[in-house]
Amino acid sequence: MTIPLSFLDLAPVPEDKTIAEGIKQTVEVAKLAESVGINRYWLAEHHNMPGIASAATSVLLSHIGSQTSRIRIGSGGVMLPNHAPIVIAEQFGTLQALYGDRVDLGLGRAPGTDGATFRALRRQMQDADRFPQDVQELLFFLGTDSNDSPVQAFPGANSQVPVWILGSSLFGATLAAKLGLPYAFASHFAPRMMTQAIQAYREQFEPSQYLDKPHLMLAANLLLADDDETARYHFTSTQQSFVRLRRGGRGQMPKPTHNMDNIWSAPEKAMVDDALAVSFVGSVPTVQTLLGHFIDEHQPDELMVTANIYDQAARLRSLELIPELGIFDLAQ
Rank of each mutant, 00 (worst) to 15 (best):
R250Y: 08
V281D: 02
D296Q: 08
P162D: 12
T57D: 01
F185Q: 01
D16Y: 08
L291R: 04
S283D: 03
G106Y: 04
E302F: 14
M193S: 12
S54V: 07
H234A: 07
G77H: 05
V163C: 05
Q96Y: 13
D274H: 14
Q160F: 13
I88K: 09
A153Q: 06
L330V: 06
P207R: 09
L175E: 11
T144H: 00
P4F: 06
S279P: 00
V305W: 14
E15T: 08
A44W: 02
H293N: 10
P14S: 01
H258E: 14
L121E: 05
T113G: 10
A176G: 04
A89G: 03
G65C: 08
P14C: 08
D274S: 02
R202D: 02
G65A: 11
Y210F: 15
G108R: 03
L216V: 00
I263E: 07
I52E: 06
I38S: 10
G77S: 09
V281R: 00
V103R: 00
W264R: 05
Q240D: 02
D127N: 02
K17A: 06
P12V: 02
A55M: 10
N221C: 10
L319N: 05
D261F: 13
P191M: 04
F118Y: 10
I88P: 09
Q209F: 14
R123C: 06
G77C: 14
L245C: 12
A275N: 10
N39P: 01
F118T: 04
Y183F: 15
D329C: 03
A314I: 05
L211P: 00
D311K: 04
M125Y: 14
Q124K: 06
A110F: 13
L218E: 09
Q124C: 05
K178I: 09
R317F: 04
V135A: 08
Q152S: 03
F235Y: 14
M260Y: 14
S146R: 06
T113F: 11
V278R: 00
S187M: 11
T26C: 06
M271S: 01
Y233T: 01
R202S: 02
V278D: 05
A128E: 11
S283H: 04
I73R: 02
V13K: 03
T195S: 09
L290N: 09
A157L: 06
I322L: 15
W42T: 10
Q299E: 08
I309P: 07
Q25A: 01
A219N: 08
